[in-house]
Write a protein that binds this DNA or RNA. Sequence first.
DNA 1: GCATGACCCTGTAGCAAATACAGGGGCACT
DNA 2: AGTGCCCCTGTATTTGCTACAGGGTCATGC
Lengths: 134, 134
Amino acid sequence: MNSSILTIGHLAKQTSTKVETIRFYEKNGLLPEPSRTEGNYRAYEPDHLNRLSFIRRARDLGFSLDQIRALLALSDNRGQSCAAVDAIASEHRAEVEKKITDLMALKAELDRMIDQCECGIVADCRIIETLSPK
Amino acid sequence: MNSSILTIGHLAKQTSTKVETIRFYEKNGLLPEPSRTEGNYRAYEPDHLNRLSFIRRARDLGFSLDQIRALLALSDNRGQSCAAVDAIASEHRAEVEKKITDLMALKAELDRMIDQCECGIVADCRIIETLSPK
DNA sequence: GCATGACCCTGTAGCAAATACAGGGGCACT
DNA sequence: AGTGCCCCTGTATTTGCTACAGGGTCATGC
């Protein structure tokens, strides 16, 4: 038996991923199907671990599964220009920037609303009033 | 016929909501079931319009449907203390603040990653390298 | 007087990105 | 042989909608 073969549980532990999530990635084409043991257990090789680590890092950075699929495909073609990689990362950064802007505007509105609350009764509540029409 | 009675389409237009979304709010207990016409059409009254406007404003401010359900219940009991309202709004603001902080850290990481890309070939790509394990 | 099209109805399925069972089988240790 | 942990498949749940499919109703035109 090869000692570098991993069960799904080992892979999960080493990447801080839930077992179900790993199966989910497989079903969705992010992680290739591993071979199976006689007992029908998934038998992972070091490459799987690398690929899953890649996926998890990209997820931590907020990339969508679609974007990660594309990044993985690009990283498998190491001779290509990495302009496409840059495009995906920059697009994602732009989305993050937009979210930040939107959330900051939102927070400003919440601040305004909450600061007016004098915590009396609901009938006089400025928060409810702000939300209510007219 | 009362001219203040509205069809679901009118309600949708006046609140910039999709018809399906209004039915969804009803099914999920945010909007009370209106009476029906002979033809089984929903017949809304001005109160429904007010309530739906409230929901949409709260959604625009990022409140969850659960939070909105709670806010609506509070706004229906106008004699109560509005401390509970303040608590919901403050909790939401804290969540928004956390999201902003998290996204700004994320953006900083993306900035670092993208700035290193010299757009050569994938094999030398710093973005792929950053994502790859070890 | 009916045809056309715009509107409405219910019910179901889909999206992201997992997470959580249910109901069963495998494996190691004692 | 029993205990307990791990693994398997398949389905349902989450959030907040959106998008049909397959029908019924209503207003307007001719």
